[in-house]
Design a protein around this nucleic acid. Structure first.
Lengths: 332, 332
DNA sequence: CTGAAAGCGCTTACAG
DNA sequence: CTGAAAGCGCTTACAG
């Protein structure tokens, strides 16, 4: 490995001067700059990032934590975050937490130790309080993505889940459904609660009273969705439509319905939330709310980068999902 | 930030001793070890990874490059690689190359600069020669995933594409198809060529002569698949089945066929390759070859880690895809 | 415009 | 078993 010392010797200057030209400091005579450049080129010099990081405490990289390295939702998120981080001349390092508390804590420590300049966090398990104390502990910028923490509202990139759920429930309502079931995600998660709230709000606006019997909590997975429908059907068969907390559960609902002779949408309208890739491919294609996860990633990346530069560019923080009407719903 | 110095002062020992207990060196008296541990705990000491990396030239992290941070295929790959790397007590850092040469070169430099201990590479654009000269240049272990470079055969985790394509073509043949078209991926990629070769081999084994007219090159995308079918149909309408270089193109083929009144599988049997998530959800569900990408990732992670430890555990290098027969194919 | 020197936080022979 | 000291490759006041 060629070091700054070797370059300085070849160019016959001090290491300080080499450092200056590497870092674009302007107080270097044009012709010594040229000598140094030549020496660097000749030697194939690459500054040692680790050594630099040790003294500057910066690495020009932003760290990101997602629950999962696989999955369409996170995939799009990572993709766009990286795109925007690169556009700011930085690099992205992604680590997964597997959605568990320990994993999240672990991943944070890992990235902090690598001295990332900013952190983009998609957190499922840490509580708001945990996040706040993290914020208090670290000195680098923190951006929270796909979650809203009131005290950190300037650093949260999130989607209006309540409004989205309300909108998709409204669709069902305008299609004359009056008995609408709801399968929620885990209720310890804010987005599950918000989506449930949107469903309730839509009913309330139409003067339909909320029936706890029609609501079941599940886990955001496909199998969970199927199971939830099963549980629901044991209670009642009255509902003509189901609002699912996400697309994955909606897929489970549809396949369970199919297997049990319930036709979608003829006998049962089903809606999801997220608009993951498969949703447009299944039969019937799924009516859902599209979450602009890519744009959110783009903004998260920007925000993280500009915060490290201490310049405050305005970024869009709250996003609204859009209704994607397909074939899993119909009027009765 | 609390440093080793502060710990050493509190514990009333030298920094060397603190370093020894941090690194589990056994030449430390049990009771001074305890004093140091207490001091570390009291201060909440976390060793500075960057400083350590500067002196040891190791970071306990393995770097990985994939074309894309999104997409089901790479998602599963990253997921399993991380799983196995973690099992070896190391961390994974993933960077994307966007499949372009420059991106790949860039990503490699980035990871090399961060002093990763090993590199797991999924490379589309770099030539074998490029890879060989990279190998010659770096001192850390290199693992190539989803590609076979003859000179690096001990470090390649790959799938037998030719055999797979042959097997899926055989299925069509046993279903009495005799005029079978083929849509390939970009032919500058080895796996495209191998899959094409498998198709040809299957035909040859059955004594069917190869017809160049029935083969069109495409780009592994859904839109590319649709377009390829369109081009194919302009040439001839004789074929009763199509072998697609991957699932994405098969999806494009199916949707283009549907739109143009060609029923799948009644009028046209379609097969893909990869078995991505959507393939089982579409209508008709897609017959394809499943690539055990997860297991490959697992092995790649293991191999990379054991290579850094200089112990050679045998790992499985070549994988065979398995036939997943679904509803997009039928006998004629 | 340039250099000598200190320092970033660690590890590792070397001596004892 | 323990410590003093050198060194990893850089950056950054400070002086000139």
């Amino acid at each position: 490995m060629v070091t700054i010392k070797q370059v300085s010797e070849l160019a016959d200057v001090s290491v300080a001067t080499v450092s200056r030209v590497v870092n674009g400091n302007r107080w270097v005579a044009e012709n010594t700059r040229r000598r140094v450049r030549d020496a660097m080129e000749q030697l194939g010099y690459q500054p040692n990032t680790v050594a630099r990081a040790l003294v500057t405490n910066r690495t020009e990289t932003v760290g990101m934590i997602v629950a999962n390295l696989s999955g369409p939702f996170y995939g799009d998120l990572m993709y766009q975050v990286e795109h925007s981080v690169r556009a700011h001349g930085k690099h992205l390092v992604v680590t997964s937490s597997h959605g568990q508390l320990e994993g999240e804590l672990d991943a944070i420590e890992f990235l902090l130790k690598r001295k990332v300049d900013a952190l983009i966090l998609q957190l499922d398990s840490m509580s708001d309080t945990d996040i706040l104390s993290l914020k208090a502990r670290v000195s680098i910028p923190l951006v929270i993505v796909n979650r809203y923490v009131p005290e950190l509202s300037d650093y949260c990139i999130y989607v209006n889940n309540e409004k989205g759920a309300q909108q998709v429930t409204d669709l069902l309502l305008t299609q004359s459904h009056r008995c609408i079931a709801c399968i929620t995600g885990p209720l310890f998660k804010q987005d599950s609660r918000d989506r449930l709230q949107g469903y309730r709000q839509a009913l309330a606006n139409t003067g339909i009273s909320f029936q706890p019997d029609l609501v079941v909590e599940s886990d955001f997975t496909e199998a969970g969705g199927a199971d939830a429908l099963k549980r629901l059907l044991k209670r009642t068969r009255d509902f003509t439509a189901i609002v699912c907390g996400n697309d994955l559960m909606a897929l489970g609902v549809i396949s369970y319905a199919k297997k049990n002779g319930i036709k979608v949408p003829e006998n049962l309208s089903v809606v999801g939330f997220d608009d993951i890739v498969v949703s447009s491919y299944i039969d019937p294609s799924l009516t859902t709310m599209r979450v602009p996860i890519g744009e959110m990633g783009e903004q998260a990346g920007s925000l993280a980068c500009t915060m490290t530069e201490k310049i405050q560019t305005p970024v869009k923080l709250q996003f609204t999902p859009t209704l994607i009407q397909r074939n899993s719903t119909q009027s009765i």
